[in-house]
Write a protein that binds this DNA or RNA. Structure first.
Lengths: 336, 336
DNA sequence: GCTCCTGTTCGAACCGGTTCGACTTCATGA
DNA sequence: TCATGAAGTCGAACCGGTTCGAACAGGAGC
């Protein structure tokens, strides 16, 4: 059941079938109807590889995400889902590529022309994958932005604005010593964008409000969070609040506080940036800026498709702000 | 930089280049070396679409997962990641397809020959997608098994054995009234396999141990879990323990118990099946069978690749058991 | 010296689509 | 009446690989 068979049964040439399907040239109504009835009868569907070969468009998008060695976060899952959904709505597929530094997987996608464009997650301030794609002239959109963001297309959450908002809120509640719980050592070292900008926003706002701060890095799991609380309280006992961007450690942070005999939010406040799922799972629920992963996925696909359609269009990007959802984990600083 | 260009520069025919690359026919060492040096110089990579068209193998696998309307679980994320990883190791790509009941997306993958085979998640006991693929004679592996599992290939966690183990453990601790927290109404209604087999295992074991039970369904979020606890305690006040297969509601269940003034595990025990990430995030940590999502992903890819290589091989499947990780949420039944 | 075999290479056909140029037909306007 | 053009269709070339059959060379065996 290929196009030749359809043409034969409809008594027309292969090109006429093609034109009837694509609409790229006029086909008479009667011919079109005859072709359509053959197609319906046979259940014909054009072969994707052949079509891609002929017109140079695969109609799939690459989604490059970090390999399993690093822990996944809920934000990533939601993001992947929304990208798949948005792509499907535009009749595109999504090709997953778990590609780390060894960018074999990425170059496979690009150089073998498996996809028309790429969405990249877990961007670093200086990211060789971005340089590679720019060099190759291959269409791409990043989630997160590199240090010099003007030449590229991206969707990003304004992490520094959000952590700053958290500090501002805590300062307003009277907190004077606040700790920052960042992502893992490995990610920070690698130059992971959101970790750095989140920290920047935190420190700037803290300085502005005359708050004493200390920043910590924390592995992406509950055990690390629990251990970190102990360390924070030992190193800076006057700490009365935390701003966290590490949602995977959240449950551990809460447990650590409980173990230390601190009740949230009476004795200790905690805020940050997290997927709403995690923010709502902990008790008391976390006052935090929710990561709009779903919206970011849709936007990334939009931007990429636009770029693929029109390769010469100027760089575009979207910087998302996000209100802090007031839940129950931040309160007035305890009297001391 | 296509194969013609490589052939021209190496002074050989296109077929010789092809044979040098594939090894499907002998090529002299000197010729091979000449070709290789041209390839290195040009950075040539064969075009994936052309290759797929010529030899009928796309070297990609489809991964069909539920659409975003239903909530994603951590198990799914880990699974997706490990599938991508295993596929990459075998030089295959993974094509995501968020396909619900309207199986447009699935038939696109299959009929347009975008993939060589399909892995399907969220299997139902009676699943029309399975019937469709069987009819089409298309290679596939399911995560979870249909009611009549002998004809198909699958990887499944033995949910009934696991929930039974949870009941057995709780019964041994003296609990006499135990509630079961299942997945959402929608999923159960749809015939979602793990929900049904989990419930079966729970009820059989309960009967065996003379335990009073009641089964509830719960939406996949914290708020639903919190509300459910209230309902359970109202409808069956003698309940002293819960078995849950709903990891997304877990945080809410804990919160509900705390709100009711019940301390875990002193006043109330809770066990179940959950991704270890969630089990470890709650306080006290959940005694539960961990979902081996990573292993399941690898196995699914193995099974599928084997089937693609050898389409006539007999159905194979893997039923995974999993020990219950003893953490801190289950204890002796309170004296009454 | 001649045949046969093996190793190596080439040309052509093919996979299943898309697209370009050219050829009919037929209606329109001068 | 005849040029003009638009609508509709066809054949051929092309996208970039793979694979089959045949050709050719050189060495072994007779």
């Amino acid at each position: 059941m290929n196009i030749t068979e359809v043409a034969r049964r409809a008594g027309v040439s292969r090109s006429t079938v093609s034109y009837a399907l694509s609409g790229n040239r006029p086909v008479s109504d009667t011919t079109r109807a005859r072709i359509q009835s053959v197609i319906d009868e046979l259940g014909y569907r054009p072969n994707a590889s052949a079509r891609a070969l002929a017109n140079g468009r695969t109609r799939s998008l690459g989604l490059v995400f970090p390999p399993a060695s690093s822990h996944y976060t809920d934000m990533q899952l939601e993001f992947i889902g929304s990208v798949a959904e948005a792509a499907a709505a535009a009749e595109h597929d999504v090709l997953l590529s778990a590609s780390g530094d060894g960018d074999r997987a990425l170059s496979r996608l690009v150089e073998e022309r498996r996809v028309d464009g790429v969405i990249m997650m877990e961007i670093r301030l200086h990211d060789e994958r971005v340089d590679y794609l720019l060099d190759a002239g291959f269409p791409f959109v990043t989630i997160g932005r590199i240090a010099d963001p003007e030449r590229t297309r991206w969707v990003d959450l304004d992490h520094s604005a959000l952590t700053a908002a958290c500090v501002r809120q805590l300062a307003g509640l009277g907190h004077r010593t606040i700790a920052f719980v960042n992502r893992s050592e490995r990610l920070v070292r690698a130059g992971y964008e959101s970790a750095h900008r989140g920290l920047d926003g935190f420190e700037c706002a803290a300085q502005e409000h005359g708050v004493v701060t200390r920043a910590y890095r924390c592995d992406d799991d509950a055990a690390a969070g629990e251990a970190l609380i102990e360390r924070i309280l030992a190193e800076q006992p006057r700490t009365t609040a935390i701003v966290t961007v590490n949602e995977a450690a959240l449950g551990g942070l809460y447990r650590g506080l409980a173990k230390a005999g601190l009740s949230v939010p009476r004795d200790f406040s905690i805020t940050g940036i997290a997927a709403s799922r995690w923010a709502e799972a902990v008790t008391p629920q976390l006052t935090a800026a929710d990561v709009p992963a779903h919206r970011m996925g849709l936007l990334a696909v939009d931007l990429l498709l636009e770029l693929i359609e029109n390769p010469d269009s100027p760089p575009r990007h979207v910087l998302l702000d996000q209100p802090v959802s007031l839940r129950a984990s931040a309160g007035a600083a305890p009297a001391r």
